[in-house]
Design a protein around this nucleic acid. Structure first.
Length: 491
RNA sequence: CGGGGUAUAGCGCAGUCCGGCUAGCGUACCUGCUUUGGGAGCAGGGGGUCGUAGGUUCGAAUCCUGCUACCCCGACCA
């Protein structure tokens, strides 16, 4: 339940919830741990979908759709995979309700018990690989590059709007290849796509790397990830791309006949990002005045607020602004002209600030006389008067500028919150004082990582891909280390 | 699942300890007039089975019991 708006310095969780609720993005549903995504929140997701989907298509992928329900037996095939998900699955056991004879209302009909339980997908690897077995016969059927936009359910113990809900929306790509090399390349290609999207659409810098064995996806040989840093110094895993080796091919018996006429198991990848990205976007840029959206993802990039006293004034303003709206739309800029007389200008200013609209124009009779329009930008909250003749050109540049500025600010913030440490004492001190990414030597063992996690709640977020090899000693065990890795407390 | 908190009008809350008049405040909503360049002012008005089920009582938002949901912190995870 929403409280009064508070500064993020006091309570980041509360600040975050306020943003989500007051900017009209989402709310908790009546179903435990699920969320209702409101139209404005969903339109941000749609923009994300559009951007990602285009990138997927450009890299040769196609969309398909697989069932929501997965027979329980499918889960017994890949052992480590089921271990990773079994604890948090919603299970369908019956298929009918009935009226209770003792007047207790609607009850589950005990006679309608399913022969085999159905699992509401926590991810679709199993059912997709079961399907792929029939789709793949020959090397000519490969590579198989498929993406699915879907909802999945994970019965998490603790939930949080957008960041970890019981049901969430995502895309999951599942590909099959004839060689290990090609599959590995695919996993890395999709990591590039995610990086591109995070940095150039969301204006959110990300670290690219591999996960340590402890953090690796259940059933994967290697998990690549992009890690973002939120304003409060906590890390957020923004996307993952997995190299699955032949684990799923073997578990689901997916073989192909090679050019050499030999039966071989296919090589696989999977990759996904979810509505968690909305949470990441909110926490990357927003301030105490509300949401701050990067132009590329903002449902409305420009909002125009006429200042008028009567219908006559509005008619004059409309006449003046209409050609500008037309020109902006021709450039593909998403413009909203809020000419409602049911709300006052001041109210609208605050409203669109809350919703994070990148550029706001205000125009009244006074401006028309002076041949100017007031242009306000959301990222810096600054305003200036621009000549009507040059306003379209100005806005076009301004949108690019805001997009860049948001990225650069986030990048600078991340740099300020990234620290190299060389001892465990220093590690703990930095973790508790400012948080953020901490670059430190690690001996490479899961045991050390686990102990650090238990003692400090910090985990290895990733081993950066372009890491410089550097001899050193593990901050925890003192054993030799060949490189620094990135630690952080995370969401 | 462990610890803490909350549930009263669309939203935010008071009232609950110590039971008692018609359940109140802010905001939002409706009507009218004045307003309109940073969340307008005045006047009038509508909206509540007090989360739910049961109990105690002449009488329950208030006391007792069960249940449910949500929020925060932890373990788990995208």
């Amino acid at each position: 339940m929403a409280k009064n708006f508070t500064s993020k310095s006091e309570n980041y969780s509360q600040w975050y919830n306020e943003l989500v609720i007051k900017a009209d993005l989402a709310e908790s549903s009546a179903v435990r741990g699920c969320m209702v995504i409101k139209p404005y929140g969903y339109s941000i997701w749609e923009k994300m979908q559009q951007g990602l989907d285009q990138m997927f298509k450009e890299t040769g992928h196609e969309n398909a759709y697989f069932p929501l329900f997965i027979p329980k037996s499918f889960f017994s095939k890949e052992a480590s995979h089921v271990e990773g998900f079994a604890k948090e699955c919603a299970v369908v056991t019956h298929y009918r309700l009935k009226m209770d004879e003792n007047g207790k209302g609607i009850i589950v009909d005990p006679d309608a018990k399913l022969e085999e339980e159905l699992i509401v997908r926590p991810t679709s690897e199993t059912i997709i690989w079961d399907t792929y077995r029939n789709w793949i016969q020959s090397y000519r059927d490969l590579p198989l590059l498929i993406n699915q936009w879907a909802n999945v359910v994970r019965w998490e113990m603790r939930t949080r709007l957008f960041l970890r809900t019981a049901e969430f929306l995502w895309q999951e790509g599942h590909t099959a290849h004839s060689t290990e090399k090609e599959a590995l390349e695919e996993a890395l290609r999709m990591l590039d796509v995610y990086t591109d999207f995070a940095e150039n659409y969301m204006a959110m810098p990300v670290l690219r790397g591999t996960k340590s064995a402890n953090e690796r996806f259940a059933g994967a040989i290697e998990t690549f990830c992009i890690e973002a840093l939120m304003q409060d110094g906590k890390a957020l895993q923004a996307g993952t791309s997995h190299f699955l080796g032949q684990n799923f091919a073997k578990a689901f018996d997916v073989k192909f006949l090679s050019k050499e006429n030999k039966q071989e198991y296919v090589w696989a990848t999977s990759w996904g990002v979810s509505t968690r990205l909305i949470g990441a976007l909110i926490m990357s840029h927003s301030d105490d005045n509300g949401l701050v959206l990067p132009p590329k993802l903002a449902p409305h990039q420009v909002v125009i607020i006429p200042i008028f006293k009567n219908d006559e004034d509005l008619a004059k303003i409309t006449e003046c602004i209409t050609p500008i709206i037309t020109q902006l739309r021709k450039l593909g800029i998403r413009v909203k002209f809020d000419n409602r007389d049911s709300q006052k200008p001041g109210w609208k200013f605050n409203e669109y600030e809350f919703k994070g609209v990148p550029v706001r124009l205000a125009i009244g009779l006074r401006d028309i006389e002076n041949n100017v329009i007031e242009v306000a930008r959301r990222d810096t909250l600054s305003k200036e008067q621009i000549n009507i003749e040059s306003v379209v050109e100005h806005i076009e540049k301004l949108l690019v500028d805001i997009q860049d500025n948001l990225f650069n600010n986030a990048l600078a913030r991340r740099a300020a919150l990234t620290t190299e440490v060389n001892s465990y004492t220093e590690f703990i001190e930095v973790l508790d004082s400012k948080g953020g990414f901490i670059s430190a030597h690690w001996d490479g063992t899961p045991e050390t990582e686990e102990k650090i996690k238990q003692e400090t709640k910090a985990t290895i977020r990733c081993i950066p891909l372009d890491n410089n090899l550097e001899d050193g000693v593990c901050i925890y065990s003192g054993k030799p280390s060949i490189q620094r890795v990135i630690f952080a407390r995370s969401y």
